[in-house]
């Protein structure tokens, strides 16, 4: 921590913070694997945002005359049974993966953190009710929960996002509750009570921000989990309706043509794996930098 700061920097008020950020980036991106992970995620985001500009063909337009072609300079990954360009469909499919990842984690994170915050802060009967309910959710395998919820809500991409979010919720609630229980003992929380802050203010202004670091790690790791689960659900036939492209559904569609056109299944599968791997690596990297004590716990 022995850093030389000039008076001006101190007066400007943001010097230590910039240094912290710089140090964080240096340690975080210093490991080559993490850097590779970050690059994969950036590529994914750019691909998803600029899909119409990047994709060489229309992902939906059918042309049966060129069905099931092998890779060529015109169709780099070949075409599917309806003559649609595989590469373009993969590029558009990245939108589904990314959107589902972020929205599902958003839904699960907000609901789970709120429940965990309430349980940890109020304790007693509130804690008992919420946590037993969370235990009950944990007793149902997440994929099963998401599948049943997704179908019960009426199917479709939006409902899959909600269902996946709910299936992710228990981990957030548990982690948040544990954090709150630790932070609640801090003097600044007691001081807040003494000066008459409302419970709401203490919870959201004082307790919540101090619980965040491990939750940020969980969010990153969960993006990978959510993308993998969405792929699984779309493989089973739940999610975006045809002719829209999702990676899991593409793997399933290609399954029938495994003998003649294995690329139909292989290519989208590799994309799923790479993206999930990238989020996992970045999550692990973040955890090591933010809080090495957490190693192995989430």
């Amino acid at each position: 921590m022995a850093e030389v700061t000039t008076t001006n920097e101190i007066l400007s008020g943001n010097a230590p913070r910039t240094n912290e950020l710089r140090r964080f980036m240096r340690v975080f991106l210093g490991r080559k694997v993490v850097l590779v992970g970050v690059i994969i995620i950036l590529v994914l985001i750019i691909t998803a945002l600029f899909a119409p500009q990047i994709a060489p063909h229309d992902p939906i337009k059918q042309n049966l005359r060129i069905a099931l072609q092998s890779p060529s300079s015109e169709h780099l990954l070949g075409t599917d049974p309806l003559g649609r360009d595989i590469l373009s469909r993969i590029i558009y499919g990245s939108r589904v993966s990314l959107a589902v990842g972020f929205i599902a984690v958003g839904v699960g994170g907000v609901l789970g953190m709120t429940l965990g915050l309430l349980a940890g802060y109020f304790g007693r009967i509130v804690d008992l009710l919420i946590m037993r309910f969370i235990d009950a959710m944990m007793a149902i395998p997440p994929l099963m929960l998401a599948l049943v919820l997704g179908v019960s809500l009426g199917g479709g991409l939006n409902n899959v996002m909600i269902a996946l979010g709910i299936s992710l919720l228990p981990t957030y609630a548990r982690l948040m509750r544990g954090q709150v229980l630790a932070v609640k003992q801090a003097d600044y929380v007691k001081a807040g009570k003494v000066v008459g802050c409302s419970d709401f203010r203490i919870m959201f202004r004082h307790v919540f921000p101090n619980c965040l670091p491990p939750l940020i790690v969980l969010v990153t790791l969960n993006l990978g989990v959510a993308i993998l689960s969405e792929a699984s659900l779309s493989f089973l036939g739940l999610g975006i309706s045809p002719p829209g492209a999702a990676w899991g559904a593409m793997v399933y569609d290609g399954y029938t043509y495994l003998m003649t056109n294995p690329l139909l299944s292989f290519a989208p599968g590799i994309c799923i794996m790479l993206v999930v791997l990238a989020f996992n690596i970045v999550g692990d990297g973040l955890r090591d930098v933010l809080d090495p004590r957490l190693r192995g716990t989430i």
């Binding site: 493989f235 794996m273 999930v276």
Partner: peptide
């Protein structure tokens, strides 16, 4: 181990069928 966490198992199954069965 990292690959194992990231690989879609339905896809792994399909790879297995392709190589070891077909």
């Amino acid at each position: 181990a990292n690959l194992g966490m990231a690989i879609p198992i339905f896809w792994l199954g399909i790879l297995g069928i392709y190589f070891f069965s077909l």
